Amino acid sequence: MNIKINDSFLKINDSYLFSTINKKVKKFISINPNADIIRLGIGDVTLPLSKVVIDALEKASAEMGVQKTFRGYPPEYGYDFLKEAIKKYYSRLNVTLDMDSIFCSDGAKSDLGNIVDIFGDNLVYIPNPVYPVYLDSNIMAGRRVRFMEGNKDNNFLILPKGDYECGIYYLCSPNNPCGTAYTYEELKKWVDFAKRTGSLIIYDSAYEAFIKGNEFVHSIYEIEGAKECAIEVCSFSKQAGFTGLRCGFTIIPLELEAMGHSINKLWSRRQATKFNGVSYPVQRAAEAALSPLGIAECMKNIDYYMENARMLSKLFDEKGIYYTGGKSSPYLWILCPKGMKSWDFFDYLLENANVVGTPGEGFGTCGEGYFRITSFNTHERTKEAIERLRKIL
C-alpha cells in the first residue's frame, strides 16, 4: 500500500507500559498456573461504586427507556446539571468557575492526550518520571519535548528553573507516579513563572481528592492569576471509582488566551468536531458523586485506599527504604533495594513474592532504579502483599 503514515508514531514505544506488564504477568501465570498473584501495579480502583452513584445511574438508565424522558446525543461540553455540580464542588475551595469554562469528557486521559490538537509547534516541558500519556501524545503530534528531571535531590517535586523557556508545561499534583503534592507556595512559583514567560500550564489534578493536609493545593485556580495561564484536567476515575464508567472534565478559563486567540473557543471547536459527549446516565452518576452524600461515600473509599498506603509506608519505613508518596496519594514511589534496575526488581517481586508493581523506568529515564506500588486493593490482599514483601526485602 502506497499510503504515507504519521511517522511520529514510529518514535514511541511499540507497547504501552501497562500492556507490557500484563504480557509479562500472563506469561508468568502460564508457567506457574497455581501462583497467587497480588496486583499492586496498574492504578485501577477495586472497590465498588457508592450506593448514591449506583442509584443515580439506575434511575437515569430507566429514564432512557421512557419516551418522555429519553435523551439522544448529549451536549458536547456536558449537561448543565453536571457542570453546575462541578462549579459547586470548586466553590468549596473559594474558586469561582464560569459554566462555559467547564468541558465534560470521558476521562482525564482523553483530554490530556487530545489537548495537543489545538496547539502549534511549542516547546513542551514534561516531568521525568511522569504518566506516559503526556509524553506519548506529544511525540505522536511531532512536538519538541524537553524533560524536567525529578530525583532524590528535589524529592521528585519539580519547580521552575532559570533555563526553562516559554512553552507548555505539564504538572501533576498529587503526582503520578511519585505521589508528591504541591503546596500553595510551590505552585505559586509555577504560576508566577508562567505569567512572566508567557507559558501555559496543563495541570493534572486527577488525584486531588486523595490530598491530606491544608498545606497542599487541590486546584491550581486557588493561586491568584492561574486563570490567565493554566488549564486544569480532572477525573472521576479515582475520586469516585469511575475507571469503568469513564467521566472527567477539563477547565479552560475564558481569560486564557494565546497570541490573541481564546483557548476556550479553540477547545470548544475541537470538541464539537471530534467528540460526541458523555452518556446521560454516566453524567447523572457523576453529578451524584459530587453531591454531599456522594462526596462522603466516595471519601470512605479513598480513606480505605489510604489506609493501605499507610500500611505500605510503615513497611518501607521499617525496612529503611526511601520513598515518596503514600501520604496524599494512593501511590508509593520506592527506591529499588540493592541498586536493582526497575525491571529486574519487577521480575524479582513477581517470581519471589507473586506481587506485581510498576517499574519506574516505564515512567521515564529518571524512573530507572525506582518502583511504583499502588494502594488500590483490599486490606486483606494488601496485608498479604506486605507480609510477602517483608520476607524478601
Rank of each mutant, 00 (worst) to 15 (best):
L159G: 08
M148I: 15
E84G: 03
D100K: 15
A288Y: 04
R39F: 13
D344R: 09
N352E: 06
D117P: 02
D153E: 15
D317G: 08
M306T: 04
R269E: 12
I386A: 05
A141C: 08
I220F: 00
S329V: 10
V191N: 01
I158K: 10
D347N: 15
F316H: 00
S15L: 15
G142I: 10
F236I: 03
D303Y: 14
G225N: 06
R71T: 14
I42N: 08
K300F: 09
L332S: 02
D111P: 11
A272P: 05
R390T: 07
N114F: 13
A296D: 03
D192P: 01
I211R: 06
L10E: 13
N22D: 15
K338L: 14
E351C: 04
A309G: 13
R144S: 08
V66N: 07
Y207E: 05
D100L: 13
N301K: 08
A285R: 00
K26V: 10
S205N: 07
W343S: 00
F28G: 02
N354G: 05
M148D: 04
I321D: 10
N122S: 11
I252F: 05
K188P: 06
I302N: 01
K4E: 08
L335A: 14
K319Y: 14
Y79Q: 01
Y90C: 02
P337L: 09
K314F: 07
E185F: 08
S329I: 12
V233W: 05
P160Y: 07
L187R: 00
T365H: 07
A206T: 13
